[in-house]
Design a protein around this nucleic acid. Structure first.
Lengths: 264, 264
DNA sequence: GTGAAAGCGCTAACAA
DNA sequence: TTGTTAGCGCTTTCAC
């Protein structure tokens, strides 16, 4: 099937190519009802589909949203990706998904690729503080939003949960229910970076314990950063000789969110 | 930061715009080493990034791969999407992901949107036989591949597992291990469509039972099409009065695959 | 309300 | 090996 272009439609409808555009885009100029009908009929008869690439080229904007996540196989990010896709779809946008696999290089790779594709917007669930990523973002003054994590080198609008507050609330809640103390199972704490959800959870737990006058020493447990190991460590902990009376573990589930805007 | 175009680079390097293209694309014409150096230097100095949309427009091909799945939140499809993305990324392609959410309309929507975006290729994990989807595919003679499911109205290259054979093997295996009979937990069997993995699994189980001279009546159980309900039904079954001696349940995990090519 | 035409930034003939 | 230039299919300004 030979490609049908806007010119074919115009010819068939006996109008100019501009009018065809006006009909397709509902603007920017008005079109007489009768003309519009002729154009629509021609479009249907010819099976015309506008070429989105050409549209993007001429209008200088795409209908693409880029989404970079550490690993979309993880239920938390899978859920996130699905939600983003749904919201985008409702607004006539398509979503490019990239997995950074927790690697700086891949994060930068997708940043570069997506921005080069002139995405209308980019959502970045950063996998950690990365100077190269920050530099890459600066190079294109692009519309980007950080989600879930707010690594310090990148200074953009961010949508994050109140991780410190949440963990603090949870811990306080358990204490109020009579637990003598609360242990915390908090991921591998290497460089407790600000803006890292797990670090923030641990911080929230620490605050709640401290405000209750309880020591935290020896009550923070760690496991590799995935559900299987966390589960195993949790079981060991609960079955061991020093079974804690209560335990908080950072849940990876998006609920409410707060929005931080950079000074700019 | 004002947009840097290829023309700026050419001017800066003191060459023509064509040479800049030759350098960027490593062809189609050779470039003298010295000239190449000047161009590369100019690119770096100016922070030039080729506009992928313009490239696509001019070359009439994008670096986009479309992937349509029923629901990327499900581990099976999440795994699949990740694998596709990884393979695409290795080949310099980006992946557009669309969830059909098991709805014809959404499947067609993404088919139309992705093909309109002139994706270089499209992978469709169909959510079921759909005449409209088939029609949409025919409308664009596009490069598409069916994955996991091969609904009858769509006649394209398909990559699927041997679902009948797999279930048959599993059932036979259990019987050879001495099970008096094998029950099957097989999803909601509405219209046992050919090419639907679960229908095929059931068929495989049926064949193995039949070849062993065993009746299947009353031994096929059904549950809604998700892991939670399947788990519940499975538990009930195993705890009930008619606990079957052995049970096969279609696993949703990709292993080996066979490739069917249409007559064309 | 409609049409002519100038780009959008790049690729790839074709010419030199 | 390098340069010139005609498009790619569409949007949008501007004149009618």
């Amino acid at each position: 099937m030979a490609k049908v272009t806007r010119d074919d439609v115009a010819r068939r409808a006996g109008t100019s190519t501009a009018v065809v555009s006006y009909v397709i885009n509902n603007g920017p100029r008005p079109v007489a009802p009768a003309t519009r009908e002729r154009v629509l009929a021609a479009i249907k008869e010819l099976g015309y589909r506008p070429d989105r690439v050409a549209q993007a080229m001429a209008s200088r904007r795409t209908d693409l949203i880029g989404l970079i996540v550490p690993d979309a196989r993880q239920p938390f990010f899978a859920e996130m990706a699905h939600a983003v896709e749904q919201a985008a779809s409702e607004r006539g946008k398509m979503v490019l998904v990239g997995n950074s696999d927790y690697a700086d290089a891949r994060e930068v790779h997708y940043l570069r690729a997506f921005l080069g594709m002139r995405v209308a917007g980019l959502i970045l669930v950063s996998q950690g503080p990365s100077e190269t990523a920050a530099a890459e973002i600066d190079a294109w003054d692009a519309r980007i939003v950080l989600l879930h994590r707010r690594p310090s080198p990148i200074d953009d609008v961010a949508v994050v949960t109140d991780d410190v507050g949440g963990a603090q609330l949870a811990t306080r809640h358990l204490l109020e229910h009579g637990a003598p103390y609360v242990a915390c199972l908090g991921g591998t704490e290497q460089t407790p970076a600000e803006g890292d959800p797990v670090s923030d959870h641990v911080e929230g737990w620490r605050r709640a314990m401290t405000e209750a006058g309880l020591p935290t020493a020896g009550r923070l447990f760690q496991s590799p950063y995935n559900r299987y190991d966390a589960y195993r460590v949790g079981l060991e902990l609960l079955a061991g000789p020093d079974r804690p009376p209560a335990l908080v573990q950072p849940l990876r589930r998006l609920r409410s969110a707060s929005c931080a805007r950079p000074a700019s």
